[in-house]
């Protein structure tokens, strides 16, 4: 069994406020890039599955040469192999086209995993689009993998207040949420391996597909307006201050 995790290199969330609108529009970011935090949970899920049910975890990304760093991080966490699909201008549908073609070229993927969204695009559409392209079932909101084999994948998914247990015959696309598990740290042994391994690079022509022209066009990028923050200190005894704070929160409709 192979668990293939789709990862994306995204800005470090701590540095997101530094991104300028024009950088976001061009995709040329000058800040520290990391593995999309949601995808780290998908990597954790795949590694847990390989430990619990056998099989091997691999990672794949669509991006430019720099995105290899995200794949090295996946390898350092414990993935056995990684693949870069080189492309830097596809939209979500184009990315899904490339990933689906790569999965078909690999031919042995049992479970394809993704995070539930990326911290830059925030659309959450890629897992849906890949499943559509591959014709595989898609389970979103996956919080726990109960069982995985060639015959059946059983997961618990969260939907609002509800919790479903879903059984499906693989191959399947799973989009996971944070509850699946805290991403593990890389080990030094894996760091050493990850730093040395040659990562194969595939292009669209290797996959026999054409990247569809973007169907989504961003017409405007702008930052949200800066909110005016105000600090109010309440004097008096703890009881008086608490009472005044409560009144203020009610007046502001916080409570």
């Amino acid at each position: 069994m192979r668990y293939l995790v789709c990862v994306k290199q995204t800005p470090d969330t701590a540095e997101l406020p530094k991104v300028k609108p024009e950088e976001a529009a061009s995709g040329q970011l000058s800040i520290h890039l990391v593995v999309n935090p949601w995808d780290e949970h998908a990597l954790e899920a795949a590694l847990q599955m390989s430990e619990n049910f056998g099989g091997e975890a691999s990672a794949i990304t669509v991006g430019n040469e720099g995105a290899i760093e995200a794949l090295r991080s996946a390898l350092a966490m414990g993935c056995k192999s990684a693949t870069l699909v080189e492309n830097s201008d596809a939209d979500a549908w184009g990315v899904a086209t490339l990933l689906a073609a790569a999965v078909q070229k690999m031919g042995d993927v049992t479970v394809l995993l993704t995070g539930q969204m990326t911290v830059d695009g925030n659309s959450g559409t890629v897992p849906v689009a890949i499943a559509r392209k591959l014709g595989w079932p898609l389970i979103t909101g996956v919080a726990r993998v109960v069982e995985a084999s060639e015959e059946a994948v059983v997961v618990e998914r969260v939907s609002g207040q509800a919790r479903h247990t879903v059984r499906v015959k693989p191959p399947v696309v799973l989009s996971v949420i944070k509850e699946i598990g805290e991403p593990r740290y890389p080990t030094f042994m894996n760091i050493r391996k990850a730093a040395r391994v040659e990562i194969p690079v595939w292009k669209a022509e290797d996959l026999g597909v054409e990247v569809p022209p973007p169907v989504v066009h961003m017409s405007d990028f702008r930052k949200p307006p800066v909110r005016d923050a105000r600090v109010q200190l309440f004097d008096g005894t703890p009881e008086e201050a608490a009472s005044a704070l409560l009144d203020a929160l009610i007046a502001e409709k916080v409570l």
Binding site: E69, S73, A76, Y185, P186, I191, A195
Partner: peptide, 13 residues
């Protein structure tokens, strides 16, 4: 090196 960067990211994390 790539190794140093990964060690740095891991320990800072």
């Amino acid at each position: 090196t790539t190794e140093h960067e990964m060690v740095r990211d891991m320990v800072r994390d």
